[in-house]
Amino acid sequence: MLTDDGKHLYVSWDEYHQLIERLALKVHASGWEFDQILCLARGGLRPGDIVSRIFDRPLGIMSTSSYRDDGGTLQGRLDMAKYITMPKGELAGRVLLIDDLADTGVTLRAVVDRLRAMPAITELRSAVIWVKGVSSYEPDYHVETLPTSPWIHQPFEEYDAVRPEALLKRYKI
């Protein structure tokens, strides 16, 4: 649900899963065949996992981080993992890159540039749920465009503030 001021978008678990399914359908409708999926951790983990299961393709993971300051709301320096985790072999062939959103576009652009420099990758396409209006990168597939570039409150973010002690209290353990 987008707030009246257009500055915040609140997404429930059901909406989140429906958006991932719609992303999978967009990729499917394109007719493009791919060999592997690479998701960007952390935001792309859940979409990558679900799309990997729907298409029955191997899932690789690349860790990136840029939102660390001010409780994860301010973009800082972009860090990209040196290694990509694959279940078997190397990242190669036709690769679908998945993340949750194209925010500023800086992370996606940097990852795409790095992947395109890898000779084993013959074709690369990108897919995200949301593209913000301020994004400098346009992915190949996306579900929603957000012209006002709101802050997206994803359902799993509640765990950003949960610590084991709180769970102990919640479950009276």
Rank of each mutant, 00 (worst) to 15 (best):
W32I: 07
S65F: 05
E138P: 00
E165G: 07
Y141R: 01
Q75K: 11
A117S: 15
I121C: 04
E90T: 03
L45E: 15
Y141C: 02
P164S: 08
D5R: 01
E165I: 05
K172I: 00
P147F: 11
R22H: 10
I61E: 07
A166I: 09
G72Y: 02
I173H: 00
P58V: 10
H28W: 14
E138N: 04
K172S: 03
D49F: 06
Y159M: 11
G93Y: 05
W32A: 08
V128P: 15
T64R: 11
R68I: 09
P58L: 07
L124E: 09
L91D: 03
M1H: 09
D160E: 09
L96S: 10
L115S: 06
R125V: 04
I50T: 11
R109F: 08
A120W: 07
K88V: 03
T107G: 15
V162N: 05
A110P: 09
M80W: 01
T64M: 10
R163K: 14
G48I: 14
A92Y: 03
D113H: 13
K172A: 02
P164I: 03
L45G: 11
I129P: 07
L2V: 00
P87G: 02
K88P: 00
P139G: 01
G43A: 15
Y67E: 10
W32R: 06
I37E: 12
G105S: 11
W32S: 07
G60E: 13
V134P: 01
T148H: 13
T73L: 03
E165Y: 01
E144I: 14
L96Y: 10
T122S: 08
V106W: 04
G72M: 03
M1C: 03
Y16S: 09
A92K: 14
R94A: 14
G44V: 01
D103W: 12
T73R: 07
G31M: 03
E21L: 11
A81Y: 11
I98Q: 09
S149Q: 13
T104F: 00
D49N: 12
T145N: 13
H153C: 03
F55G: 05
L2D: 04
G133E: 02
R46A: 15
K88A: 06
V95W: 08
R68Q: 10
P147C: 11
I121V: 10
R57P: 02
L168M: 06
G93P: 02
A120M: 12
Y171D: 08
P150V: 12
R114W: 04
G72E: 03
A127S: 13
D69I: 06
L108C: 05
